[in-house]
């Protein structure tokens, strides 16, 4: 087994985090196979029922099963996070790669643009964009994705800057490798690990931001189940049905904490490896 992977799995927190995320993703992917009920199926005779054997998380104000909605909500969250990270990566990584590899005016112009994006509070930018585009899953995904561009650009640039000085890169260039060739076949493959850590960290940020937008009522429009929207509606029934806003919140919080623990453990392992490489 890969020594990095072994060290990661030896970390109890990270292991728990991986287990939770795998379980959640599996439940989200196979939701339609494992769950008996439809997330949109209303049962007006059984509204706001407390948790029971039939409805583990209870039912909402339209009698819909809250656990089913929480699991379909995971699908919404994970799709948004995945899409947002892909958008952020596809734009951010090339920006960082070009800025770090060529330096000079390209670096100055690209990083100044990234700084402007970084200067805007992410949630404010996302809300402004959604105000223009209207509420939809695509608008949320795009808004969350764009706010993630700066971190990818900066991480990649920092990584490329340090690789640029290494002998093997100089060797490839001296042997006549073109800039594009060197950039994509020599520099980028060696810059992956911090970028992958960023993928994990940004997934947590994306899920949190999407949930926050839905909680504020500007995210993915109902009736699509989303965790933020469940908490938003559940907040209206705190006296009648306190479990409504509590249980989906636990699922959301565990997701964030799992990804966060995983991301921080990974970045510590990579730091250790790098200091071991650079050390005496």
């Amino acid at each position: 087994m890969n020594p990095m992977l072994r060290r990661l799995l030896a970390h109890r927190g990270a292991l728990l985090g991986i287990a939770y995320i795998v379980l959640l993703a599996a439940a989200a992917i196979f939701a339609h196979l494992i769950l008996p009920s439809d997330p949109l199926a209303q049962d007006l005779a059984n509204t706001l029922d407390p948790p029971s054997a039939a409805h583990w998380f209870g039912t909402d104000e339209l009698g819909r099963d809250l656990m089913t909605r929480a699991i379909y909500g995971a699908r919404t969250s994970l799709i948004t996070a995945l899409g947002a990270v892909i958008i952020a990566g596809l734009i951010g990584v090339p920006i960082g790669l070009v800025a770090g590899f060529f330096g000079g005016w390209r670096d100055a112009v690209l990083m100044r643009l990234v700084d402007v994006l970084l200067a805007l509070p992410g949630i404010l930018f996302a809300m402004a964009l959604i105000a223009v585009l209207g509420r939809s899953q695509f608008a949320s995904l795009l808004a969350v994705g764009i706010t993630g561009i700066p971190s990818f650009a900066r991480i990649t640039r920092a990584q490329v800057l340090s690789l640029r000085q290494r002998d093997f890169v100089t060797a490839v260039e001296a042997l006549g490798g073109s800039s594009t060739y060197t950039m994509f076949t020599t520099v980028l493959p060696n810059a992956w690990s911090p970028i992958l850590v960023q993928v994990v960290i940004l997934s947590a940020v994306a899920i949190l931001l999407e949930a926050a937008l839905s909680f504020l009522g500007v995210g993915i429009p109902p009736p699509t189940p989303s965790w933020g929207d469940m908490l938003r509606t559940g907040k209206g029934f705190l006296y009648e049905a306190p479990y409504y806003a509590v249980l989906p919140g636990i699922v959301l919080t565990l997701t964030i904490l799992s990804l966060d623990t995983l991301g921080r453990t990974l970045s510590r392992l990579i730091e250790d490896r790098q200091s071991a490489e650079d050390g005496p």
Partner: peptide, 22 residues
């Protein structure tokens, strides 16, 4: 600290309302 950063603000707020108000 990890908990303070990881628990979504809006959910923490709901929990505090449940405890101190409801």
């Amino acid at each position: 600290s990890a908990l303070a950063l990881g628990v979504p603000t809006f959910w923490l707020g709901i929990l505090l309302i449940l405890l101190f108000a409801v």
